[in-house]
Design a protein around this nucleic acid. Structure first.
Lengths: 195, 195
DNA sequence: CGCTTAAAGCAAGACTATTCGCGTTAAGAT
DNA sequence: ATCTTAACGCGAATAGTCTTGCTTTAAGCG
């Protein structure tokens, strides 16, 4: 559950930067597993993490920005883009991975965070996260092309696989499962073949 | 912009029910057009609508529930399910409609509302809205089948058309347009043909 | 037309969330 | 080892949100 170890002697200037960050992140994740975003408060995070409220306000500003930061980092670290040797293999591994993420407790939180325009500065924003991920996925598709396979475009991948998985997480009680993920992969590959 | 006229002599018991509701709804929509959800407050809605804060708190409880209520009603009243005589025609009309809705100022708000578990009681919830809409769409598909066409399933429709449109609204700056909507319809029909 | 009653208005007060000034701590540099 | 400084901890001040008791209004009804 708590995947981030304290990386003691790091970070740039003045303060005991990193320690605070990991403590806060852990607290947020913990609390998010115990209750909804709506039940979360900065006061709560402060208490749980042992970091003073004022510090959290100073570093993140709002609850939205904090959650966004934490959740994005968490998801980014979790799923590496697969490289199984076949397009189908890659796609299935990726789809199942996403399905799991999105079905987990952080799934809805992540989606909601994407809709909250609350980043400290003009910083990152969901789009950049998506772009980074997009770049990796593009490489995956390129590999397939290099092998002589006939991969879909990145946009098709996003629309046919990612979008439905997110959609389920938003509107259906039981979001997704591996079988569903595989159905989506079939659909995407069928599209590519047709062309 | 303000689509709801005051329906004076209606509603059930005691109070001057309807007048207040429409005033509040209008205020919320106005304010939502002017700024983000995050900048919205109940105090603001009270001032703009001329309805007292306490009244709003008593009737809706939270900002989330209020926005959810207003936005859902708004979207529900807007788009009727089309009946053009052909499956393709229906699908295109529907897709373009949704694309417009979701690209408008209320699009992101609606999506966000779907992720906020803030309904007064255990009442409606997004799912019911979706179900209602789903029923209508199912009828549309049934009509196509009765005409001898080969329509997709409702789930396929949702996944191939609705999900990508929502996805774009969430993660891309320029959400969608009619052309994109038509591409999605093509994709869906291609899937049906294959089977 | 005059009751009954649910819902609205109002204002005070409780409760939270957010900001601020100031003293303290420790990371990185000399 | 000492110095510098950004970031932290703390408590108090401020601002904003939400609740509550009481009074008033008007919809529906006899």
């Amino acid at each position: 559950m708590s995947a981030m170890a304290a990386q003691e002697p790091v970070r740039r200037p003045g303060g005991r930067n990193a320690r605070v960050r990991t403590a806060v992140c852990e607290a947020v994740l913990d609390l998010l597993h115990e209750a909804d975003w709506d039940d979360l408060s900065i006061a709560q995070v402060a208490e749980r993490s042992g970091v003073h409220q004022a510090t959290i306000y100073r570093r993140w500003g709002t609850l939205g920005a904090l959650v966004d930061d934490v959740v994005t980092e968490q998801l980014t670290r979790s799923s590496p883009v697969p490289d199984t040797g076949t397009l189908r293999g890659d796609l299935e591994a990726y789809a199942v991975q996403v399905a799991e993420d999105v079905a987990g407790p952080l799934g809805p939180v992540f989606l909601r965070a994407a809709l909250v325009g609350a980043r400290p500065e003009g910083e990152p924003s969901k789009h950049v996260y998506l772009l980074e991920r997009g770049t990796q996925l593009q490489k995956m598709l390129d590999r397939a092309r290099d092998r002589g396979e006939n991969p879909p475009t990145l946009l098709e991948l996003l629309e046919v696989i990612l979008a439905p998985l997110y959609f389920h997480a938003m509107f259906f009680e039981r979001p997704t499962n591996a079988h569903h993920a595989r159905t989506l992969v079939d659909r995407l590959l069928a599209l590519s073949e047709k062309k």
